[in-house]
Amino acid sequence: MNFEGYDIDMVNGGTIHVPRGVSAERPFLLMFDHTSKDCNPRASITLEEGAQAEVIIFHRQADDAPVHVDFMREAVVGRDARLSLSEITQMGAQSTLAISGNVSQHACSRTEMMNVWLHGGKTKVDIEVNLAESHAEANLYGLWFAAGTGDLAERTDINVRALHIAPDCTSFQLVKGIAAGEAVGKFTGLIHVAADARRTAAQQQSRNLLMSETARIYTEPRLEIYSDDVKCSHGATVGQLDESALFYMRQRGLSEDDARRLQMSGFVNDIISRCPHDGVCDFVYALAEERIKEL
């Protein structure tokens, strides 16, 4: 992986601070080459009032040795600030990665999150978004893959919590998953609306594809609503590839494998396309294509 010529600022260490009113011209890239020595990395992102920034976080392994990483990141998004946060994980099948992410949003701030959990033996993700002041907006897009059999069967566990503390805030969650082999994927999505959080608009969608009879997917929407004046919706589906679409594509000459891959690409594309940086977006597309070939 080489981001030379990507027009990106590599960040050493894990602290990004964008002062008041400043728009960072280029995305920040936090590249974590995890080794067994450094198992508790931290990242801290602060956008002061009116600031704007795009941050891309990559997790990968420095070498083939299994690692156990406990990663914590915190973001504070000031009043009227705009944060775009993309996170991509690519860990080995015997590694464990726990991500704990906390985003606090001030009034009228906006956060866009794109998460692609590509690879990892055990991946556990806890993301909490605090909509602490009014008119804040958070959009979260997630995509996970889990595959493998026996000891190498991957486990992915995604927990997202959208906490509506203040009135007039908006949150949106769309998390997609593909499980193959004997892998297990789990998604728990919470929408919490506090009593004072009037005129909350919150949506949550969980869309999942099962690629084998032995893979398992659990999806659990949780809505805790203590205010009367809200618009909340949620939906969850677990399905298989669309047979009629496979037939349609094969009738046009595509092999069965190509038709399956193309349908999976179609399934994941609308998440990856949320990545704000074209170069990184193409790069993640390519990684996802490789991943899909293995399923």
Partner: peptide
Amino acid sequence: SIEDRARAGIFLGFQYPVEIPGVSMANF
């Protein structure tokens, strides 16, 4: 196979053409 028939020049115009989300016409 389905695809070998297609490659050999058999084309079926579907009564109910199938929607394939996320797959662009051009790519397909």
